[in-house]
Structure formats: C-alpha cells, structure tokens
C-alpha cells in the first residue's frame, strides 16, 4: 500500500493502547510519515502531560496549536476549555463561565457519565469538520481505557435526553462509526499481557463502539541478529580479524539475548495475529532517548511497513479479515 493512501484512509486516527506501550511515539512517527507525503497533520493530545513535544525537541504544548515540525502541528484538549468554547459558540458563554467558576461543572460531569470524554471527542469532531488538517491524530488518554473513552457518547445518550450535550454525542457517534472519517489504531508491546489486553480492547471497540480498526502497531520489537554465538570465533578467523576473548563473550551474550527476545516476541505477535487478524506494523526498539532523530527512524520503519501492506489493508474487519494479513518482520531473520 502506498503511504499517501494509508494516511488518507480517514481524517481522524485515534491512537490507543494501555499505558507504557508508546502511544505518543507512535503518534509522532505517524505524524512525521504523513507529513512527508505533503499532508498537513494535527496531533491532539488529550489532557495530561506527555512526551510528545520532547519527541520533537520542543517545549510543552498549549491549548492553542503550535508547530512541532514542518507540516506537523499539535495542541492539547481539556474538557473544561472545550466546554467553555462549545457553549460560548452557542451563545451560552455566561452560563459556561458560571458552570466552571462555581465548580458545578465537576458535579455535572460526575452526574453525566462520559461528559468529559464527550466534550473532548466533540471538539475533535469539530476540528475534523472544519478541515483544520488533512490528518488529525488523537493521542488517546493513557490511563483511562480507550474503550471507556470512546464508548462515552453511547453511554451519554442514555443519561442525557435533551440539549446540546446530547446532540454532541449523536454527532460524535456518527463520526466514530464512519471509517472514512475516523479509525482507531491500537498500540501494544509484543508481550503476553499487553497482547491479551489488546485483543480484549480491539473486540470491545468493534462491538461496543462500532469504530473501524486500522493496523496494530507492535512497538519495541527487538531486532534479531543475523549471527550465531557458536560460530563467532570461527567467523573471526574466516574474516581474518582479531576477536578479543572478552568481546566474544559479550557478543555471544548480546546475540543470545536478542534472539531469545525476538523469538518470544514473534510468538506473541503471531498469537496476536491468530486471535486478531489485523495487519501489524512493527516498530523497532531503539536505543537512546526518544527525540527527533528516533522519530524519523520510526517514521522510516512505519513507511517500510506500510509499503508491504496490501492495497485496501485495514478494510477487513477483525472477525472476517484474512488470516494472511501482512506482518512486517521485526528485522532480518536469523540466518542459521
């Protein structure tokens, strides 16, 4: 699949997954890859501080948008500010201020399940409709489960029978259930527990939210080494180079470690594929702090992965998708 086609599948991509799997890194890499095709990208961060600006070597984000890299802008969304803005645009500015200033917003938000989530998603929908960017990437809340975040509009329809908040929920549901407007890309690590949780999340999102799932990002894949600990000494002789004994031990240990990890990770990624037939995009584990250089490397890996996807990848739903979905190998296979 061509990268431009990949990034234009839907205008909104929600990047979701449990904490610590690297959602922010994936959001940044996706943004950079998309910007390379000439698309304008807006990353939306939902609450909280995150490492997103650091990925681009920039200062923390504001509610107003700012540029992080050529073609990549970003902003944060907070429910309170989104509410102020939403009501303000509908001639209820005074009311919204009173709601926030009196603290009543907390009470109302507590009374209405998913109120805060709907305000944020409503703002995303508004950004989508106003065409602020060719691609809007939402870095979903880390701690809150993606399912809870995305299911809020449906829960809200039960709680709120009238008024602008209900209208907002209806419109957000329309966006979430239209694959040409929005899809979710899940991120996981190639390990047992994260894989199990991803599978549960994926089916819950499909069944309960009705949102389209894009490829799954499998992050922090160890790259297997095309070498064998057993033949190191002989290899050195063949290549006519000196191999200090201490180096030989360190090299053997490094190869064995990488290999053990890669085998375990491949097994987990294969298990994920068997249980959730979605295409996978694997990103390598990189050394060093994540900064602009690493994000470029991730964007390269993502671009290579996308190139290997069949055309129309992501059109197959998990339950009916072909088990032959393409998997991008984490690196050169062991040569032995």
């Amino acid at each position: 699949m061509e990268l431009p086609a990949f990034v234009s599948m839907s205008r909104v991509v929600i990047v979701a997954g449990k904490g610590g799997v690297g959602k922010t890194t994936v959001s940044a890499a996706l943004a950079v890859a998309a910007a390379r095709t000439g698309a304008s990208v807006l990353i939306v961060e939902v609450e909280g501080k995150s490492g997103l600006p650091a990925c681009f070597g920039r200062a923390p984000l504001e509610y107003e948008e700012g540029e992080l890299a050529p073609g990549v802008r970003a902003r944060t969304l907070s429910p309170d500010l989104a509410l102020l803005e939403y009501l303000g645009e509908r001639g209820m500015r005074r009311l919204s201020r009173r709601l926030v200033n009196s603290g009543a917003i907390d009470v109302v938000a507590t009374a209405v399940p998913g109120m805060r989530d709907i305000l944020v998603l409503g703002k995303v929908k508004q950004l989508e409709q106003s065409g602020v960017a060719d691609l809007i990437i939402v870095d979903a809340p880390a701690a809150g489960h993606a399912v809870r975040f995305l299911i809020s509009p449906r829960g809200l329809l039960d709680a709120v029978r009238v008024g602008p908040v209900r209208r907002q929920a209806t419109e957000v549901i329309a966006m979430l259930s239209d694959p040409s407007r929005c899809r979710v890309m899940l991120v996981t690590l190639p390990e047992e527990t994260p894989v199990n949780e991803l599978i549960d999340t994926a089916y819950a999102l499909e069944d309960r939210v009705g949102v389209k799932l894009g490829p799954v990002f499998v992050n922090e894949c160890d790259v297997d080494v095309a070498a064998d600990p057993v033949t190191l000494v002989r290899d050195a002789e063949l290549a006519r180079v000196d191999l200090p004994v201490s180096d030989a031990a360190a090299l053997a240990a490094a190869i064995a470690f990488r290999h053990e990890r890669a085998v375990m990770q491949r097994a987990q990624a294969d298990r994920l594929l068997a249980r959730l037939p979605l295409p996978q995009l694997r990103l390598p584990l990189l050394a060093g702090e994540v900064g602009p250089a690493q994000i470029e490397q991730f964007a390269d890996a993502l671009t290579e992965g996308v190139a290997l996807l069949p055309d129309g990848a992501g059109e197959g739903a998990p339950k009916t998708g072909s088990p032959a979905s393409h998997v991008i190998p984490a690196g050169p296979r062991r040569s032995m």
Binding site: V223, V225, A226, A227, D228, T231, L232, R234, D235, A236, E237, L238, A239, V241, L243, D247, A250, L251, A254, I255, R258, P332, S335
Partner: peptide
Amino acid sequence: AAALRLGAAYGAL
C-alpha cells in the same frame, strides 16, 4: 559472510 555475521553481532552489542 563471516565478516557480515560478526558485524551484525557488533552492531547488536
């Protein structure tokens, strides 16, 4: 080929 294998090992290390 041996040099490449050894190189890959050093790269991983």
